[in-house]
Amino acid sequence: MAKRGEQDTKKEKGGQTVYFKSRPAIIGSYSIAGEKEGKGPVGKYINNVVNDCLFGEKTHEMSEQKMFEHAISGAIKDAGLKPNQIDMMLSGDLLNQIISSSFAARSFDLMFVGIYGACSTMALSLAMGSVMVDGGFVNNAVVSAGSHFATAERQYRYPLELGNQRPPVSQWTVTGAGSIVLSNKSTAKSPCVTAATFGKVIDWGVLDVNNMGAAMAPAAAATIIAHFRDTGRKPSDYSHIFTGDLGKLGEDILRDLLAEADYTLGTNYSDCGRLIYDEAQNLYQGGSGCGCSAVVLNSFIMKKLRNGEYKRILFVATGALLSPVSSFQGNTVPGIAHAVVIEC
């Protein structure tokens, strides 16, 4: 670890990175996703694949909420706890007024902190949850993020049945949610959150709302560079580095941007958006949405952390902070990325 804070009473911080000395443990994890995700390469690691996009509900919005409820209670169950043993819930999603998270929170008798970080929400909620646990404010916290293709399409794009063509730079919003239970009491072999690098809002003037990868890649690069600078680490210090939902194109751009800053990302780097779908599913650049990184983290990545294959990973979820209003008014697409270090 890099430079430590001088006074022991203060929490450690250097640059944009905070260190969690008490190592909040990930004692529970759960992922739920839709049919397309279930058919993708990470499908076999997902806890619950729901083939009905309405999930037995009347609207897609209600179906998204229900996914959140399942993910959160699933993670609590996985932790071997009862809902009343959890102190706080931190969650966010893509919908206006983050209704999926706050409506799902009605089912849990928990302090609720709603957060918005667009598609970076899984890393943001995980980092903020770790802050709460490491600060000693709560014993157990549940954090989550998720998205739904149909609700995101309605909010950001077109009606589902409209016969339009998607541009080749576009990505497909993941239907799914992931949840993690953080605790100040570690059980054997539970992965721990040891540090988080909070990102800055970066805007390099991308105007194309379909090209999220290009909009977010500079933010991902900035956060990763800040992380390496703050910690004194390099890419090879990690078993694997994951970005959230840059997609194929964004992944290529990030590699280029980091190469210019003299960091070479090798085979130990992947993007969750690229991983979640198969090329053959023909979804252009891959997955996006809060659910993308949330599902991959809580399925494939968590499995490899728990079985010891990964010793230390850097999870960098990326978000495009646009709204339908801002893009119609001709604004550019700002990006953000938050990084979390998870170790075994």
Partner: peptide, 10 residues
């Protein structure tokens, strides 16, 4: 960046 992105985008 815009030139670079438009070059690399499919």
């Amino acid at each position: 960046y815009a030139d670079y992105v438009s070059n690399i985008s499919p």
